[in-house]
Each structure stands twice: as structure tokens, then as C-alpha cells.
């Protein structure tokens, strides 16, 4: 396969997943902010920090407000990580892939883009943020479903999946760190009643609320939520699951060649496979999550070296 094609597939997968993740982050932030009484904007500030987007936001919208951040994350054309920009980027990548991806896949992505392109701020507000987030998630599910059901499960599919799972790992990591940033931004800490709702909101935004109860049959505790989203092999948004998928796809692409990207991903996957939650929590969840982000970046970089820039 052409290196450029592989690059387009990888980023198509990443951007579509990123659009979904933005919707999820938006969703959890809104849920959290509904629980704080007194109108502090800690959650919204925290979210910007989580995305490393405080400066970019301030430049475009000034003071942090719910509407401002919502606009910044949804339809802001100047924000490269807004849902608008992500879907556009996914679609632009797909446009270069017209000869590679199935027609149904292009049509689905193009339909998503056309609907989003024609949406303005007023229409979005009428529709409601929650409803819009649900729509984005649905379109992303559709994207993956169409990919799964219509693409040949070959190299092209593997590159798309790589993008999806690397991006998802990134998102889960950031979601798990929400609490850390909320505290940093001046939010309350150590209030057990609030903690229940906060972690509950996080689970819901990861689509894992029911999975939690089916797994633990018990009250929501931070340690278990972390375990579910970091170490569980059967939880599709957990870091363990994502790293396993990344490694699996790299192994398929390597076809027996020794590839550094596969090693980097597999090595971290082994830590997740054999790690214990207490150890991670004792050493500090935030530090651990920072390390995960570094490893995701390293794997991403190495993927380009292994497949995209060889002559």
C-alpha cells in the first residue's frame, strides 16, 4: 500500500475517533458542571487544561464560560480539535482515499460532514448539546461499523484501526485525569457524595456505566473506575484493550518484520496486562496517566517511521 494512503487511513481513523471523544469530553464536563452548585466554571476550565487548549481558547473566546467552551469544542472552525474540524479532517483524508475505501464508507462519512457543515450555532443550541453529542457518537459508531462490515480486513483496515485505538487510548487517559484537573482548577475534593456523581459521570461519558455495575456489582469507587478503564481486558475503551488492539494490528502489519512501533506498544501492553491497580494508584494516577500519554505519542511517531517515511 502507498505510504500516503496508509497515512490517510490512520488519520481518518484518528480524527473520527477524536470527534467522538470530543463529544464524550463535552458530555462529561456538562454532567459534572450540573452537579456543582454556585456557578463555578472549574469543570470547563479543567476541560481546557485537559486538552492543553487554555491559550488557544483564551485567544478566541476570552473568559471561560459554558457557552464559550461548548462553541469552541463543537463548531469553532479556528480550533483544530473542534468536532467540526475533526470531522472535516477525517473527511478530507477520506477524500484522498476514494480509490481505497468502500463507497459506503465514504458516503457515510461524507453525509456526516455535510450535516455538520450546514449546522450553525443557533441550530446547535436549539438542538441541545447533549443531543448533538449523542449524534456525533452515533455517526462515529456508524463509521466504525461501516469500516468493520465493508472494508476488507487487510492492511487498510489495520491502519484505520490503529488510528482509532491510539486516539481512543489518548482519550481514555485524559478522561481519567479529569478529576485531577478539576481539583487543580479549584474544584472541590474529598467529598465522598460528590465523588460518586463525578465518577459516575465519567463512567457514563465513557459509555461504561452499565459495564461497571455488571463487573463489580457494587458502589462506584474511584479505584474500581480506574481499574475498569485502565486494566480491564474486556472493556473496549480501557487502556489495556486499546493497547492490545494497537499491538495486534501492528503485528499483522509487520508480517514478521521486527518493528519498533510494535515493540513499544507491546511493551506497554504487557505492563497493563500484568499490572496491579493499587500499585498504580499508590504511585499516583496522574503521573501514571502522563506516562501513558508519552507512550501513545511515542508509538504514533514510531508508526510513521516504520510505515510512512521509508524509501
Amino acid at each position: 500500500m502507498l505510504s500516503r494512503t496508509a497515512d490517510n487511513l490512520f488519520w481518518m481513523g484518528r480524527y473520527m475517533e477524536r470527534a467522538e471523544n470530543m463529544a464524550r469530553i463535552l458530555d462529561v464536563t456538562q454532567r459534572l458542571s450540573l452537579q456543582t452548585h454556585g456557578g463555578a466554571h472549574a469543570e470547563w476550565t479543567a476541560m481546557l487544561a485537559l486538552l492543553c487548549a487554555e491559550e488557544a481558547y483564551a485567544e478566541r473566546h476570552g473568559a471561560v464560560t459554558e457557552n464559550g467552551v461548548a462553541a469552541f469544542l463543537t463548531l469553532d472552525r479556528g480550533n483544530p480539535s473542534s468536532i467540526w474540524s475533526c470531522v472535516r479532517a477525517a473527511r478530507e483524508n477520506a477524500r484522498s482515499l476514494r480509490a481505497t475505501i468502500p463507497v459506503e464508507m465514504w458516503e457515510s462519512l461524507n453525509t456526516t460532514w455535510l450535516a455538520l457543515r450546514d449546522l450553525d450555532e443557533t441550530a446547535l443550541q436549539q438542538r441541545g448539546l447533549r443531543e448533538f453529542s449523542d449524534w456525533v457518537k452515533e455517526r462515529s459508531h456508524l463509521f466504525r461499523g461501516v469500516a468493520h462490515a465493508t472494508m476488507l480486513h487487510n492492511e487498510a483496515f489495520a491502519f484505520t484501526r490503529l488510528g482509532t485505538f491510539l486516539e481512543r487510548a489518548d482519550n481514555t487517559t485524559r478522561l481519567l485525569d479529569t478529576k485531577h484537573y478539576v481539583v487543580e482548577a479549584g474544584g472541590k475534593d474529598n467529598d465522598p457524595a460528590a465523588a460518586y456523581y463525578e465518577w459516575g459521570a465519567l463512567l457514563r461519558s465513557a459509555g461504561a456505566f452499565r459495564a461497571y455495575h455488571q463487573t463489580y456489582h457494587d458502589v462506584i469507587t474511584p479505584a474500581r473506575v480506574a481499574e475498569l478503564l485502565v486494566l480491564r481486558a474486556d472493556m473496549p475503551r480501557s487502556l489495556r484493550f486499546c493497547f492490545d488492539k494497537v499491538t495486534e494490528n501492528l503485528t499483522a502489519l509487520a508480517e514478521g518484520r521486527p518493528l519498533e512501533s510494535e515493540r513499544l506498544s507491546g511493551e506497554f501492553g504487557a505492563r497493563l496486562r500484568y499490572g496491579r491497580m493499587e500499585r498504580i494508584l499508590n504511585a499516583g494516577l496522574h503521573d501514571f496517566l502522563e506516562e501513558v500519554l508519552d507512550r501513545i505519542a511515542a508509538v504514533g511517531l514510531q508508526i510513521s517511521r516504520d510505515f510512512l517515511m521509508i524509501v
Binding site: M1, L2, S3, R4, T5, A6, R98, A99, T100, L308
Partner: peptide, 30 residues
């Protein structure tokens, strides 16, 4: 794109090709 797809061949841009040893090559993942 349409014709490349229908023929089942690669759609390349100039940046995907290079010349070496009196031949034209595509840059691929392998």
C-alpha cells in the same frame, strides 16, 4: 479516484513516486 478504484489500481500523486535505477517506484508501507 473513481477510475483507480474501478480498475483496482493505486491512485498516486507525484510525491508518492520517485526515480531510481532507470525505473519509477512508488513509496509503499513495505
Amino acid at each position: 479516484a473513481f477510475l483507480a478504484e474501478e480498475m483496482g489500481v493505486e491512485l498516486v500523486e507525484g510525491q508518492d513516486l520517485f526515480v531510481r535505477d532507470d525505473a519509477v517506484w512508488m513509496r509503499t508501507t513495505r
